[in-house]
Each structure stands twice: as C-alpha cells, then as structure tokens.
Design a protein around this nucleic acid. Structure first.
Lengths: 200, 200, 200, 200
DNA sequence: AATGAATGAGACTTCATTCAT
DNA sequence: AATGAATGAAGTCTCATTCAT
C-alpha cells in the first residue's frame, strides 16, 4: 500500500521544489543521473510522482536546474583574507579548506560524472576551473614575498589547482586525512618552486 | 529492415568477442555505461544481439572484462630510459608522453566515469595511481642531480601525478596543446621546488 | 496495428487490478504459469503491458496474489446443513457438490500445477487438504447413525477426500457426468465400510 | 572457460542419448518442462549443446520420447501373486507397494504437471488410470472371499485407485510414512465396504 | 497547485534452434 | 556422429512522461 502523501499544505511556497532538488542531488551523486529513476527522486523527496513533473518538465531539467542553482563552490568573498604573508604554503592550504567548506560535495561528483554527456555540466566545470586558477594566483601574489613573472605564477596556480582537484575528485575514495597530508606536501613543493623561480 | 547477419563462421578465433569488447569500449567511453544499450554494442560490433550474451552473461560483465583485460596504461618497460640527467623537468614531460602513448584513452574515460558505481573500476584506479606515483619517483630520482629527502620526492611525485591526471581527465575538454603547455610549466615549478628543497 | 488503449480513468477503483488478476487466473489455468507471457495477461485484461507491472512488481507476485486472495474453495458456512441423517452417502455427494459450487475451478488447476515450483501453492494445498478432511469428518459424524471410532472416521474421510480430489484434479479430463457417477459409487462403498466398522 | 567435452568415444552406442533422457527426466520433474532450458539438459548430461538436437529435433520431442519410452509404472507381471486370500486389505496395500516399486517417481511428476499442456501426457495418464483400475479389480476379486456385484467391485477399485494416486501425487509433499499409514486405513474401509455390499 | 493511475517504448536477458565444420 | 558459435524472436521488467481529476 503506497504511502499516501498527505496534501502538504506547502508551508513555504516552493518547499516541495526544494525537496525534489535535494533528493535529486543526493541520488544523482550516489548512483549517477542515468541510474536514478524519477520515481526514486519522488520517493526520497516524499512527494507524489506527478509533482516532480509539475515542477520540472523533464528529468534532464532537474539536472540542469541543479547545475544552474547550486554552486559546486561558493564564490569566496574574502580572498585577500586567506593570504598569509610570507607563508604562501599555508595560504594555499587555507584556500583549499575554504573552497571545500563553501561548496557542495555532491554537486562536484555530479558535475564530473555527467560532464561527458551534459554540456551544461561541462561548461560549469570550465568556469569553475578558471575561477580556481584566478583565485589561486591572487592568493599566491598576496602571500609570496617576492615578485614572480606572471608565467611562473600561472604555472604554480595550475599545479595547485590540479592538486586540489585531484584530491577532491580523483582521490575521493582515499581517506580524507591522507589527502590533506598530501596537499600540504604539494603546497610546500609548489611554493618552494615559486620562490626558486622568482627574482628577489 | 533489420540487417540480417550472415552466419559469420568465426573467422579467426574469438574474433566476435573482440569486436564486442571494442564496440563496448568505444560506446561506454562516449556515452557512459548506463546510457549504452547492449543493442547498440551489438550493432556497432556488427554481431547479432544474442551473441553479446553468449560471450558475456551480463552487461556489467562486459565492463568488468574490459577493466580486467584492457589496461588504461601499459606498464612502462623502460622507466630508466625516460630519465634525462640534469633535466628532471624534461624527464617528467617525457613520462607523461610515454604514458599517454601506451594507454587507452577510452579506458581511462570509462574508469573515471564508472568509479563511483563499479568497485572494479575503483580498485583499478587505486592501483593505477600508486603505479604512477612510483614511476614518477623513479624518474625524478634518476634525473635530479641532488639528493632529496624521501618526503620531498614523494610530494613532488604527488604534485606531478595530480598534474598529469588533471590534464588527462579533468581538462579533457580543453585543447591538447594547451594542456601540454600547462604541463611544461608545472614540470618546471615542481622540479624547481625539488631543487630548492634538496640538499646540495 | 497495436490496439491503442484510451486512457481508462480508473472507472471503479481497483478495476484494472481486478481485470489483470482475472486474466491471469484464466491463462495460468489454461496454459500454466511459465507458458503465459505477461503480455498475454495484459492483452486479455485489455490493459497496457506496463500497467501489469504497476500493480504487480513481478510476474511471480501475480501468482502469489492470486493464491492469497482467491480461495480455491470458499469455506462452507453451513456444514451441518449438508448432513442427511441416516444417509451418509448422500451427504458425502452433497458435500462434493457444495465444495465444487463454492470454489474456483481455475484456482485449483493452478495450485496443483505450480505446487512443485511455488511454495505458496504448496502451502495452500496443505491447508486445503486439512480443511476438506475436517469437513468430511463433520459431515459423516452428523449423518451416520452409528458411533464409529475416531480412527475409522478419519480413514473414511481420507478415502472420501482422495476420491473428491481425484475426481476434481486427476480425472479432470474425463466427462463430468462419469466422474459424478463414480463418486456416488465410492460414497456407497465408504459409508458401507463405515457402517461395518462401527459399533451398533 | 566452458568445460570441453572430450569426444566421448561413445562406449555403447546411444550412450549419449540415454544421458540426455536421464538429464531431461530429472530436470523436467524438478523444475517443469517450460522452466528447463535445453542448455541445462546438455550440461547435466555432460554432452555438448548441439548433440541434444542431433538426437531430438525439438525440445518437445524429448518429452514425448520420455513419455513413450519410460513407463511411469511397469506392468505388473504377477498380479495374482499379490492377492492374499481372505485379506483383501493387505492385498491392496501390497498392490500399492508393488506399483511404487516398479515405477519411476520422476515420470509421474512430469506426467501430471504437463498433462494440461501436452496431449501425449494426458493420453498416457488415461491409460495408466485404466490399468490401475483393472489391476485393482483383479486383486480384489482374487482376495475377497465373497462374490461382489461387478458395480461394487468397480466402485471399490475406483476408491482405491483414488487413494493410491492421492497418496502418490496430491500428498507427495507429506511424509512417506504418514501416507502409508493413511493408505492402510483406507484399505480397511474399502474392504469392509466391499464385504458389506457383497452377498455371502 | 497536486495526484497517482495509466501508457508504451525500449532495456536487458533467455533460449530453442541452426549450421559450418 | 559431434560440436559450439551463431541467430533472432520473444520474454520480463523499467521508466520517463502524460493526464483526468
């Protein structure tokens, strides 16, 4: 006997809509988009099946909405605050922590998994990468004592972004502590490299 | 009008089996496992639908077989040969090229996409990562003129592996040339860092 | 040209579900469970194929539901009323007629055919047999003038139940009239035996 | 890797044929005809799949052959020997034992299960029933001291055949000992009835 | 705005049977 | 006489989506 959904007096408007998106985010991340039936989304959201299609014309549009409305990383409002003058390595690690704090783990999983198939995800990823690169350059510039050529700064940022993304995505099955320890080491190497390639 | 398959008298042995695996590899990489119907595999392999299940009891087992039989990266038989004494940055870039040459791009795409859902893929990825880390350490040791503490070498390798994987996987939608240019820069930073953190 | 089903707005509640069970009952009885495609059930029920699985998650569950919901024999509400004092043979024949009237022929066919393979059917059959045995004992006790030892009554009931089941199941391919004629003879023998083994 | 069947030097001719029939008999009895794939028959017979169709043009013909060649009950060669003058009840129980000894349990299971769908099985069952009826009459006539009218003898035989078939088929899920105990009781009732309805 | 029965295309898989060797 | 790869029709089941209420 299917659990009747008592006519939800829709506390705040759009309450159901949010529940649907929440459910979809969880399920898409856990099983993948293709392997998630809309019926499962409705069940987990505790709304009737029909309501899903009332809010979203297609299953695809649930994904699109998720990508559009739920940032994988909140824009950092105080990049300068992350800098630690004279200790760029610490600053980099801070940056990773701040980004990790701000974002939605599930959304990142979804974005990468679906990037091959859904242009919106691909596009989002491109933007994200560029943003990370810029922020990293900023943090390094504000923290490193020396002047480095733009190209060197860029390469350092590329290395660090790769390390962060690797830790978050590729190494997502490893223990969190191990990943952070690895990141510290990489930060040291990158900033040492930055120092060596800068003019005093 | 369905293309009748004239009874293919198994020209070479295992010919059909190979065709099926080839087709699956291509399609899984292009659309993802879930989005690839077994019928599409049969069509692309130019074998009748039933034959797919003659060789592989389930769709899942096609994926498992692919992961077991088709290495994402051939083991490098001459790691030492990649070293360039005194020029570790060049050596690193060589390493990336060698790995890229040896492996199957499609398999890598598949492995990462399905890692969340298929344990076999996850396991394979773990092994791959460890292998890359080891090889990178070897190459650096053989190329760098100075003695670096093990921890530093490890961190450098971690950084480089992250860069290679990033370039191959995360940045797979960018132009190939751009990615290689980026890798060169990262190699320079990493080796500079290695030098700075080593004892002369 | 596939018969489009105009969207049947569930006239009476559970209407479609009943149609599906009806169709399944007929077809399972006629061809057997294994030989009945779910598509045939849908066609006969005049519902779209998908609806069958909306109501029943698996084909097996259609059978289980049938066994659970559709009695092969209605419980007799007036056993005493079947008794004919002094004429136990007549009473026995009455009993058979009453049971035959109350029950669903198709369900019995299904139950016996699937008993080897479906535990639910086997269990149901066991219960049915015990019920028939009890009812027969009651009818005999109420109709026979003499006092018979419990063991004798039991054996008479066993004989009669065997005869009824044989007539209904094993001899189901013979003419109905022949079977009834046979039953009358058996009733006479059994009650004569009962008389002979009773104390006056 | 499929178990290669070493080219059986076909010890006695028809060895494979027998193995196939044996396997089919077991499997049809256990799972039913429809639920038994020809591949399973080949596997259990330890012959290659193709060989099944070398000996039998269709799956159906395996069943037909089984029914034609493998009697569910061997014809009793010494019916008279079963009689026990003056103790018809004992004689009846002897008869059941003799029949049970002679026959193939599996074949009986198959025959009843497939009777609804396969005419050959139905026909065989009809013949079997008639045979049992005749033999029972013979045994009773040879054992009972009194002369009974033919109709009474017939009814007694019908009752006994029903009891035997019930015990063998309908009660096949009960304990064997219980069934035999029941049969003894029924034999007593039937012979008592026979006595009561006979003229001295 | 909300609901859940209804719909049918299509997915994976099974299997009797064929046939070149 | 024997073999096992090949074939395709058909079966069970899933699911996005529609729609009357």
């Amino acid at each position: 006997m299917p659990a009747r959904h008592r006519r939800r007096t829709s506390g705040a408007d759009g309450e159901s809509r949010k529940r649907i998106l929440d459910a979809a985010e969880d399920l898409f991340a856990a099983r993948g988009f293709d392997a998630t039936p809309t019926a499962a989304i409705a069940t987990r959201a505790e709304v009737p099946k029909g309501l899903v299609f009332y809010y979203f014309p297609t299953k695809e549009s649930i994904l699109t909405t998720l990508i559009a409305e739920r940032p994988s990383t909140e824009p950092l409002d105080d990049v300068a605050g992350l800098a630690v003058t004279g200790e760029p390595a610490t600053a980099l690690v801070n940056l990773d922590a701040a980004l990790d704090r701000g974002g939605r783990r599930a959304m990142r999983t979804i974005l990468w998994r679906e990037a091959d198939t859904h242009p919106a995800a691909r596009e989002h990823l491109r933007t994200l990468r560029a943003y990370l690169q810029n922020v990293t350059v900023e943090v390094l510039r504000a923290s490193a004592p020396l002047t480095a050529p733009a190209r060197v700064l860029d390469s350092c940022a590329t290395a660090w972004v790769a390390a962060m993304l690797s830790a978050a995505h590729i190494d997502r099955f490893r223990e969190r502590d191990d990943r952070i320890e690895d990141l510290r080491g990489v930060a040291r190497v990158v900033t040492a490299g930055l120092g060596a390639l800068s003019t005093p």
